[in-house]
Design a protein around this nucleic acid. Structure first.
Lengths: 194, 194
DNA sequence: AATAAACTAACGACCGTTAGTTAGCCATCT
DNA sequence: AGATGGCTAACTAACGGTCGTTAGTTTATT
């Protein structure tokens, strides 16, 4: 792997673990096997490296959602919803990218809040549109209970994804998968029966 | 309010917004109307201030849970569960304490990870015990569906609380309350029918 | 008179960043 | 073929600034 990509990978993991302010260019450089000023041969600034990683993560998450919806288009609705949820949740185990993204979403660096919001804003509305279309189809074909409103579904879905993402920090993958089953069983029961 | 409490209140809000590494003693001092070194008349170090705030937040959350369980002991089970969830979720709107706690829980400062885990560990097991007793009672009296296991309930409850806590960053209180209704309706349906 | 709590001054360490230099690589030109 | 020049990416040295912290002093309160 070339130096630039190596810096990005190392930056991703360090920013995820220690945050923007808690990560120094010296740490990144040392982990990459070069000296601190050499980073500037590849990125204009610490902020530029961070924002490029942020844009990548946002793009990857949306690509993941689109891929899940496309791949499972022909499957039963329950499978499609479960797959979508699982893909979003296990995003966190992708080479620290999930942790990075979550941190970026909830606690963007104070100096970069304007740029950060520009990145996340468009992402959220794109996801919203897909979710609403999804729940409407589910209700129409009778897979979801007819009393379930768009708003309720979207709120519950986001809540579950956020909750699961949080739990990926606290539990190993095995334990997380156990918890996922519990969350899924309650969520699915909640959107179908009631 | 005396200077010490003022420093704690200001520290809470700044740590919540900008994190441990992103907050400087100079900022705290300025907001409190004193000079930076004067902080050391009240706290041994930046870390000591932060950890005291962390312990306070952890204690307050547990006290909140206990209070909710005690206050609603005589109410219908649905009301008790809803109240508990709501109390946990709206913890976030308590003068930045919720944001602080969430950040502390998910992204503790790298230098204080040992001390941070010591604080959160005992808190979590205390909450676990209460939740398990709660779900068992709910099943026994027929308020929860008999197929709902302890594990599934605990996982789903934590997930919902974590998800709601996350959403408190993103939405104003009014919008949050709207979302809470959606989450609650799905969650309640999920733990009863199915 | 004693104590608490503010202050000023300054310390050493580290931060992100810039400047200037050097080594290697590849295309071009004599 | 061999020399030339430009480009990339590494380096060392150092800058100005800020960090948390300490020492020593003054002020106010009890």
């Amino acid at each position: 792997m070339n130096t630039r990509d190596r810096l990005k990978q190392i930056g991703l993991s360090l920013f995820a673990r220690h945050g923007y302010e808690g990560t120094t260019l010296a740490q990144i450089a040392t982990a990459a096997g070069i000296k601190k000023p050499s980073i500037y041969n590849h990125f204009d600034s610490k902020a530029a490296l961070f924002l490029e990683l942020s844009r990548d993560a946002d793009d990857d998450l949306i690509a993941l959602i689109d891929a899940s919806l496309a791949d499972m288009a022909a499957a039963p609705f329950e499978h499609r919803l479960r797959h979508l949820l699982q893909q979003c949740a296990t995003f966190a185990y992708r080479e620290h990218q999930g942790v990075f993204y979550k941190r970026f979403l909830l606690f963007p660096p104070q100096d970069l809040v304007t740029e950060a919001e520009a990145i996340t804003e468009q992402g959220e509305s794109r996801i919203d549109r897909r979710l609403v279309a999804f729940v409407q189809e589910g209700r129409r074909i009778g897979a979801l209970r007819s009393t379930l409103t768009d708003d309720h579904f979207v709120a519950a879905f986001y809540c579950v994804v956020d909750g699961l993402l949080s739990e990926t920090f606290m539990y190993e993958k095995r334990e997380f998968e156990r918890r996922f089953e519990g969350v899924w069983s309650v969520f699915w029961a909640g959107v179908t029966a009631g």
